[in-house]
Amino acid sequence: MSLDLGVFCKSTLDGEAVDHCFSALLGLGQNADPSYLDWLFKAWGWTLAVSSLALVIAMVLGAVMGTLRTLPDTGRLSRSLVALSTAWVELFRNIPVLVQVFLWYHVIPAFVLPLKALPSYWLVSIALGFFTSARIAEQVRAGIHSLPSGQRAAATALGLTTPQTYRYVILPMALRIVLPPLTSESMNIIKNSSVAFAVSVPELTLFAMQAQEETSRGVEIYLAVTLLYALSAFSVNRVMSYIEKRTRIPGFIAPSNDTGAH
């Protein structure tokens, strides 16, 4: 079977060949028919947008919830915060991500009315970000517990408060330790963003399904989409690997610790 890559230079309107594959994206005329290549790269942009927004949400909430899970037992407030963060992790990591997308799209806006005004890609990003934040929280918790207990004791002896201890002593070390698993989670977000098709976000998976039906060229369509997913994940891997090398703690070997994120 031979590949027909010319399918990407056909109009999405009538299936006829177009003069420029990037006609719409390059603005080569107001009446230029968009090609399937135009559609493919616009879908890639939506995939990257959903993934980026979800990653920001996941990193921020994951770091906060993971830190709260390691607070020392100093009173009712600390116990409440630990219980809250534990409930967060257990709730969001035990519900399938696709179910969470449907909950945020169909159910939660019925009770939180302002969410009805949000576009679907925002709701998908929130769902994906919350789901991933539970996994990152466990990795942050494991990173903090991997540090020698003497560091916390030394910070306390120096008169640092608990927030100061986390800010200046614990988190700068722990976050660098957990960069490898954070790399995996960052790559997973790109792959998991495919669930956005379920609520009609025009990302890569939805493009593949619709373009395959219209052109009957599933091999070429899914091959192109697969390559873009792989390229996106590989790019994130390279960026995170660079950050890991630049921030690595010389001579530090973290002890083995089960993150509990599986």
Score class of each variant (00 low, 15 high):
residue 158 L to S: 07
residue 250 P to Y: 00
residue 127 A to D: 00
residue 111 F to V: 15
residue 89 V to P: 09
residue 50 V to F: 07
residue 233 A to V: 08
residue 236 V to K: 00
residue 45 G to Q: 10
residue 223 L to M: 14
residue 97 V to R: 10
residue 20 H to M: 09
residue 7 V to W: 02
residue 227 L to Q: 02
residue 141 R to K: 05
residue 42 K to G: 13
residue 148 P to W: 05
residue 153 A to L: 13
residue 84 L to Y: 07
residue 203 E to R: 03
residue 186 S to W: 11
residue 221 I to Y: 06
residue 93 R to Q: 14
residue 220 E to I: 00
residue 221 I to W: 09
residue 226 T to V: 09
residue 38 D to S: 01
residue 261 A to D: 14
residue 183 T to Y: 08
residue 228 L to Q: 06
residue 115 L to R: 06
residue 152 R to C: 05
residue 62 G to T: 04
residue 181 P to F: 06
residue 26 L to R: 15
residue 89 V to T: 12
residue 191 K to W: 04
residue 155 A to S: 11
residue 84 L to P: 07
residue 153 A to V: 11
residue 76 R to E: 14
residue 132 T to C: 12
residue 117 A to Y: 04
residue 32 A to H: 07
residue 38 D to M: 05
residue 189 I to R: 03
residue 223 L to R: 15
residue 255 P to S: 00
residue 13 L to N: 14
residue 140 V to P: 00
residue 54 A to L: 08
residue 47 T to M: 01
residue 46 W to T: 09
residue 33 D to V: 04
residue 164 Q to L: 07
residue 78 S to A: 14
residue 46 W to N: 08
residue 79 R to G: 06
residue 26 L to W: 12
residue 143 G to A: 03
residue 61 L to S: 10
residue 40 L to K: 05
residue 98 L to K: 09
residue 140 V to T: 05
residue 228 L to D: 04
residue 53 L to D: 13
residue 146 S to N: 00
residue 141 R to Q: 05
residue 149 S to C: 11
residue 7 V to R: 06
residue 70 T to E: 10
